[in-house]
Nucleic acid binder design. Structure first.
Lengths: 169, 169
DNA sequence: TATACTATTGCGAATATTTCCATTTGATAA
DNA sequence: TTATCAAATGGAAATATTCGCAATAGTATA
């Protein structure tokens, strides 16, 4: 399987940071890349495990954590779970609707502008993180109201890991 | 122990949402309140356990999760760990410096303004979450530069749970 | 290319977190 | 008050995640 990195510079960045580019890491990055916008640990591990059964969950956890720290991968909490995506050229952030759970994007530049304003006021430079803003999308706003009732905070799904357990297959 | 809620309306809110205000929840909320800005699970559980040894970790986890969903408590990921704080009247967000790990605040109103702009552009209403913006504080910016080197992402500490294990105590 | 150095891995063991379910107990209404 | 009913709890079991450490294997250098 050869999934190309959307961003060919990643390899260089890894080495520049002083990390070793192991086959495991390479595979994991490709899997995350192939999964697109928001892959769960289980999805990632499943793919990795299919391609290379010997790779342990610990390695996947560690890799996501390590690269997450160094912003090669964006990790975000959403609906009670964590999702990952490859940090790409096309910086963008996500807007997630509490009601319909639709995901839309805002270009990074647009969000940066906001933080520029914040910087003017506080002197604090907000760095290149990836944000997931929760709220109500335009469509849903037209429907009812903006208030969150008792049963509407995580209405449709929760990111939950499904049993991985024993010698899976 | 009677730690007063900073916000007396909390009780009403809980009931309005249809939740029951049990002694356990009451205690947990008071503990979180007493801990101030960012308490870890372990800190919260330790306090709760001291005051009421029979309360199980599961209950604490559940309570934080439940009230987190409904915004009575703010849960945030920071430095690889999760911290909690009581959602108060004085809405504010945190600015956390990657270098010195100092924590400063921005009033909610200020941040809201930014999201208002976003709303104008996208129609998407960002809801009342609590944000922790990571970046470089004014002091540290004066020192060197803004870039994150290999060993500067989580320089000083990581929020880590300390062994709770067996019959603690 | 061979050597040395150390980051990274895999595995099992420790921890942490969630889930299950029988039991308890708020809250409501008679 | 008391009865009723579902929400919430506790404890144990199931899962998930991290950690410790010996073995492996990238990378740099000779």
């Amino acid at each position: 399987m050869t999934i190309p990195y959307p961003n060919a510079k990643i390899e260089r960045r890894i080495r520049n940071m002083g990390f070793r580019l192991t086959p495991q890491r390479d595979l994991i990055l490709r899997v995350v890349a192939s999964r697109g916008e928001h892959a769960t640990f289980d999805e990632i591990y499943a793919d990795v495990h299919t391609a290379a059964p010997h790779v342990s969950p610990a390695t996947v956890y560690r890799t996501l954590e390590t690269f997450g720290r160094y912003r090669l991968i964006h990790a975000n909490e959403i609906a009670g779970g964590r999702v990952y995506e490859l940090a790409g050229e096309d910086g963008h952030h996500h807007l997630i609707c509490h009601k319909c759970w639709g995901v839309s994007r805002v270009p990074d530049a647009q969000v940066r502008k906001l933080f520029k304003l914040l910087e003017k006021q506080t002197g604090f430079l907000v760095l290149g993180e990836h944000f997931m803003f929760m709220g109500i999308c335009p469509d849903c706003r037209r429907e009812k109201g903006d208030e969150l009732g008792r049963f509407s905070v995580y209405p449709k799904f929760r990111i939950k890991t499904k049993k991985r357990s024993k010698k899976d297959e």
